[in-house]
Design a protein around this nucleic acid. Structure first.
Length: 1169
RNA sequence: GCUCAGAUGGUGGAACUGGUAGACACGCAGGACUUAAAAUCCUGUUCCCGUUAAGGGAGUGCGGGUUCGAUUCCCGCUCUGAGUACCA
């Protein structure tokens, strides 16, 4: 019989399932090997042709390792909690468990179709209670643990309590929240149980904390940072906003350093490791304090706090802000000022008080951060008396700004000098009276006290008295400290208000406003524009003592480091641009630095202009500066991480319930024996009316009928962060996996999956693994020793090109317009669509003659004589000539459209006509005459239903069989490389398998294998492929071994080889790639059924490849000219003699003597002339 | 912008430590078998010059370099893809 792949594949899939051929149990006599695929989320769409790529590769490897004598664990399961099932549940009311079950069954069917050697007895589903019981259990362990920096590992919370009982909390070296109390053992002992519980929460590895989260209202859930793209949810593209919520978090930051270091010891693709490094974002640097120079106007100290209210007074509504606090301070200041009045003020006050002018005048009155000497509110007139010091350029400038500001606020300002007020009091009073009378009246407004309290107000201690005396910055280049020419702080920085001098108030205010208006997106896309504003304040460089200005700039992020940077224009490009733009100094600090055009961040050379480090190198300088800073208490070395703690709660139904209940607002774990905490039933999968998560709908769902359970569920990554351990012992009821089994299987030797998990799953998994190791439950520091990212399979879309035309029905030419028009409409409606072959698209677009010819042709063929007689004409639409339409790739073969199927695919295509590729016959009807073909265009796009480019593996299995599909997917190219799917080459692989089958059978398909001894050539062909396949699999180069198989089979076919000694070995070699056909032939060869999977991989014998002759390529000056067959026993010297004696070579030499002859034995000969 | 990966015929790709570039396969062209089609088999297929042949020349994104010899190593550039986003 011919190669009957359908029957063969069905039979063997059944055999493997019934006999549990691939069941793996602990077997100390064999070395273990663990091959794992990143487990799938069973979506409703099923598998497309891209999904199995990694599974096929891992399956080949697993089967290969079995043949090599390893005990292979190769399991599969489902990450079955997740959003899509829940979305579907919300839409249809179906329980997500039900749809999940349906989807899993479909996945399983598709996977079974491909002949994978999974040990299905170990299948897991994260959504089954037997599984999530242990996810909850691990959560409880995390809750009961803290991170001890001294031992550098997680420990049970009891060791922390023991410490709190004996030593001050300050001496405990823990990773914890910022706000832990500085407790003494005596404090701890007097605390109530609840107070203790509240305090311990700040140390636990999973903890409740108010966090800013990415809230997606449309999805009704919180998203992780990596689920948000440009302010929109990755899934569904809904807007995401920042919202403060009480959230469960995981203290992954405790492991930042270990997660980083671990990367150096695992065999993962470099880009993936790089992504994790970036994500962790370690920067080694120093904290440096810059002292602030007190504000130039102590009189108005504190006034600036009220800055933001300016907008209200000026009639512009700014953002809401709070400043009752500032108001109080200012009032305090103004009272202070009244006690210290100048003589001039006293004189004037005597004339102005008690409405002597006819208007009520107030003195030392606060107007939006300024204290006016006198003011008449109903007339909005300010009277200022300038003291003796009001004569320098600066103070004049200052006064002008002050006037300008008050004008903006709607006030008129008149000024008198001290002298005028004292010596010419009457004249001054008259002027004031005149001014008052001339001014329009305004209703007197209430004192401007804002009531809003949303803005974070600095704490009182920061403001009054010791108001921030320094700015702290984080820097990774502390060696550049002498190159600092300004400080830049984030516009949101808490010191902005107090640093701003009155003169700069308007500038700063406008800048902050402008910054706020810019959306996140603008700020990201508009990186190049330099912007900022000067606060008017100065700070002091702690080592050089230089005075540097403090600016605000939006390139400084409030959320990173301290929200302030020391700007070194010579070494940092952003600082450089900023300095250039605002004309700030650029100080060169290294002799090797070139910074006349742009910043140069070099660490090379010796320091200049750098005080104590002049002449030193980078390393010495860094050390010296840190030491110097530490000595004066102005800085210290510090490591910063970008990674934040992971938020661990989702306001969702379809996830693991958190095993926690609340008593008096504090969280407590349920008892371990109460696990699993089952997901309760709810009537709807939506939030409650009060905005609580769906679990809030569960009826009578209370712990011990009394206490509220936690209502959020765990995020998608919870279940997948430890699943590889569950596979080791999937059914265990007493532990997440048995200790002995964990000790045997250890870790995953080969992990294959897509790189979309780079910073999510793979980081969290490593974190949980390290945690479980700290507690002694597992033994390996890293869970996935080797990891391969399979490339994405993209779609390859096909297109047809519709020619657009219109009908010109010369209505006015008709004899009987109404009647004829009906007829015409009827007839023209029948006109078919016209499609033009892809290779003619350019021609018809650019070639007017061809276009005209085509139009005539269409007219001739499509219009009846009657219509033509009536002046009806078809006109090509030159404006919009061609419409490109996606066509289902499944009715296109090698870019040639199957016209029959195309016509049947949609009613409007039924009568379509085609302009075929041959062009000689520009318009062809029907099925294509003779050789005519309709060629489709193509493009690489995402594989998706809407693009009609989805290829379903089931269809290909149906047509060619699983073995062919498996080999073809590998044949497509290197596993790691992304590539578009194209079914075009699959025939070649199918032919190969049939050819292989034929080696065992005669022309009438009778099984004919001979027991004769193989020839030398046959052995050579065999051992060549043994070597090649072994090498290829070991380096995961599956595509090249498929080619080699083809070469081997071609060779054996040419040799007409049907020797058992060769073919049986070939069967074993091929069995990991094409297991079904191999099993069938193995059986036909007379072997026991099912033993193939555990047969011995053929042993390579190099003797069979030894040659005694070699056809040396001979090059003249490096260009290959000819081949020369010589014995391999000849040494280079003799080879050279032979070469130079050769006639052909002499011809090339053309009488010249070669300068040099290079001979590489068994490789090449090169003659240099 | 930064980081990483990549660029080879009409197409997918091969060439592993520098040693015959284009293996293997698809497609295409021609042929055999067939009443015909499918299937199968055979031949050719990097480009250019040479009618055929013999033969010659160019050629692995571009420009240089190292070398007897470079797809492979080095320097500079262009383009494509991925990740990241003002991280101090």
């Amino acid at each position: 019989m011919d190669y009957q792949f359908k029957q063969i594949e069905k039979d063997w899939q059944k055999f493997w399932a019934t006999n549990e051929t691939f069941k793996a149990e602990v077997d100390e006599s064999k070395p273990k090997y663990y091959v794992l695929d990143m487990f799938p989320y069973p979506s409703g769409a099923g598998l497309h042709v891209g999904h199995p790529l990694g599974y096929i590769a891992s399956d080949i490897f697993a089967r290969y390792k079995r043949l090599k004598g390893f005990n292979v664990l190769h399991p599969m399961g489902y990450d079955s909690f997740g959003l899509p099932a829940e979305q579907y549940a919300i839409q249809t009311g179906q329980h997500p468990a039900k749809t999940t079950e349906t989807n899993i069954n479909r996945y399983r069917e598709q996977l079974d179709n491909l002949g994978f050697s999974f040990d299905w007895s170990k299948e897991v589903r994260t959504s089954s209670p037997e599984y999530y019981k242990w996810t909850q259990w691990i959560f409880m362990q995390l809750f009961n643990s803290w991170y001890n920096k001294e031992t550098d590992k997680a420990e049970h919370i009891s060791t922390l309590i023991a410490k709190l009982e004996t030593i001050p909390a300050k001496e405990i070296n823990a990773v914890c929240d910022d706000d832990v109390l500085p407790l003494l053992p005596s404090d701890w002992s007097t605390m109530t149980a609840e107070e203790k519980q509240a305090e311990l929460l700040k140390y636990r590895l999973t903890f409740l904390k108010e966090s800013t989260v990415n809230w997606c209202a449309a999805l009704g859930t919180v998203l992780a940072n990596d689920e948000v793209k440009d302010g929109f949810s990755e899934r569904g593209g809904h807007p995401v906003e920042q919202k403060k919520m009480m959230q469960w978090s995981m203290r992954i930051t405790a492991y930042a350093e270990r997660l980083l270091q671990g990367l150096n010891h695992i065999d993962w693709p470099e880009p993936l490791k790089e992504m994790q490094r970036n994500w962790i974002g370690k920067s080694v640097g120093a904290m440096v304090k810059f002292s602030l120079i007190p504000n130039p106007s102590p009189k108005e100290k504190g006034a600036q706090e009220n800055l933001e209210n300016l907008n209200d007074v000026a009639g512009r509504r700014g953002y809401e802000t709070a400043n009752s606090f500032a108001w109080d301070i200012l009032k305090g200041n103004s009272k202070e000022n009244r006690k210290q009045q100048t003589d001039a003020e006293i004189v004037l006050w005597n004339e102005l008080r008690d409405s002597q002018t006819g208007f009520k005048i107030r003195r030392q009155h606060v107007i939006e951060g300024y204290i006016a000497d006198f003011v008449c509110l109903p007339k909005k007139l300010v009277i200022e008396i300038d003291g003796g010091y009001h004569n320098t350029v600066e103070t004049i400038e200052y006064d002008n700004q002050r006037t300008e500001f008050l004008n903006k606020a709607g006030f008129q300002v008149i000024r008198f000098t001290n002298e005028e007020a004292i010596n010419n009091t009457n004249k001054v009073i008259t002027t004031i009276k005149e001014k008052l009378q001339a001014s329009p009246s305004y209703p007197e407004k209430a004192e401007p006290v804002s009531t809003s309290t949303t803005q974070v107000a600095p704490s009182p201690s920061e403001k009054a008295g010791d108001e921030a005396s320094f700015i702290e910055v984080f820097t990774t280049r502390v060696d550049t400290l002498y190159g600092v020419s300004f400080l830049a702080i984030a516009p949101e920085h808490e010191l902005v208000a107090s640093l701003t001098t009155p003169a700069q108030k308007a500038d700063i205010e406008n800048y902050i406003l402008a910054t706020k208006k810019k959306s996140e997106l603008d700020r990201m896309s508009d990186v190049k524009t330099v912007s900022g504003a000067f606060t008017g304040s100065y700070a002091i460089n702690p080592l050089s003592g230089e005075k540097v200005p403090v600016w605000i700039a939006d390139y400084v992020l409030a959320g990173y480091g301290t929200g302030a940077v020391m700007a070194v224009p010579s070494g940092d490009q952003r600082d450089y641009l900023f300095a250039q733009h605002f004309d700030l100094p650029i100080i060169q600090i290294l002799d090797a630095q070139v910074c006349d055009k742009e910043a140069d961040a070099t660490k090379e050379g010796r320091y200049i202009n750098s005080g104590i480090i002049n002449g030193l190198s980078y390393k010495e300088a860094t050390q010296k500066i840190v030491t110097a800073l530490e000595e004066v208490g102005m800085g210290y070395a510090k490591v910063n991480f970008r990674m934040r703690d992971a938020i661990f709660g989702r306001q969702r139904y379809w996830g693991e319930p958190v095993p926690v209940y609340f008593k008096n607002g504090l969280p407590y774990l349920i008892k371990e024996e109460e696990l699993p905490l089952l997901l309760p039933e709810v009537d709807k999968y939506l939030p409650t009316e009060s905005g609580e998560p769906p679990l809030g709908r569960a009826k009578d769902w209370k712990y011990q009928d009394e206490y509220e359970y936690e209502l959020s569920t765990m995020p998608g990554w919870a279940g997948s962060s430890w699943y590889w351990y569950r596979y080791m012992d999937a059914k265990n009821d007493a532990a997440f996996a048995d200790k002995d089994k964990i000790a045997y299987w250890k870790d995953v030797d080969l992990y294959i999956g897509g790189n979309e998990h780079a910073t999510g799953h793979l980081l969290y998994s490593r974190f949980w693994n390290k945690f479980l190791k700290d507690l002694g439950y597992v033994n390996e520091e890293e869970p996935f020793k080797k990891l391969i990212n399979q490339g994405m399979i993209q779609g390859r879309s096909n297109f047809v090109y519709r020619l657009n035309y219109s009908v010109n029905n010369l209505k006015e030419n008709l004899e009987n317009p109404d009647e004829d028009l009906d007829k015409i409409n009827y007839l023209t409606q029948e006109l078919p669509l016209v499609f033009i072959s892809y290779d003619l698209v350019d021609k018809i677009t650019n070639d007017a003659d061809y276009r005209m010819m085509t139009q005539n042709n269409i007219n001739d063929n499509l219009l009846s004589l009657e219509l033509k007689a009536n002046g009806i004409e078809i006109l090509l639409d030159n404006e919009n000539l061609i419409t490109k339409i996606h066509v289902d790739v499944n009715i296109v073969e090698n870019d040639i459209l199957n016209i029959e199927k195309f016509k049947a695919s949609r009613p409007e295509f039924k009568d379509a006509i085609f302009i075929f590729e041959d062009g000689s016959n520009p318009l062809s009807f029907g099925e294509g005459r003779g050789e005519a073909k309709y060629v489709c265009g193509h493009e690489v796009e995402k594989m998706s239903k809407s693009k009609f480019n989805v290829v379903n593996p089931d269809d290909l299995v149906e047509r060619y069989g699983a073995d062919t599909l498996r080999m073809y997917e590998m044949f497509l190219g290197p596993l790691e490389q992304s590539k578009p799917w194209n079914t075009n080459g699959i025939e070649g692989v199918f032919k190969f398998l049939r050819k292989f089958w034929k080696l065992f059978h005669d022309d009438s398909f009778n099984f004919v294998v001979s027991d004769e001894a193989p020839t030398k050539a046959e052995l050579k062909a065999l051992h060549k492929i043994i070597k090649k396949v072994e090498e290829d699999i070991e380096r995961f180069s599956f595509n090249t071994s498929v080619s080699s198989f083809m070469i081997a089979v071609n060779e054996l076919t040419d040799l007409k080889c049907n020797k058992r000694a060769i073919l049986q070995e070939m069967v074993i070699l091929l069995s990991s790639y094409a297991p079904h056909i191999a099993e069938e032939l193995w059986k036909q060869l007379g072997n026991e059924e099912g033993t193939l999977s555990y047969a011995q991989f053929p042993v390579f014998n190099p003797e069979h490849l030894v040659e005694n002759e070699f056809a040396y390529p001979v090059s003249i000056n490096g260009k290959t000219k000819m081949n020369l067959t010589l014995s391999l026993t000849l040494e280079p010297v003799d080879v050279e003699k032979e070469v130079l004696a050769n006639e052909q070579v002499l011809k090339y030499l053309d009488g010249k003597t070669p300068k040099k002859v290079i001979v590489v034995k068994g490789r090449i000969i090169n003659v240099v002339i």
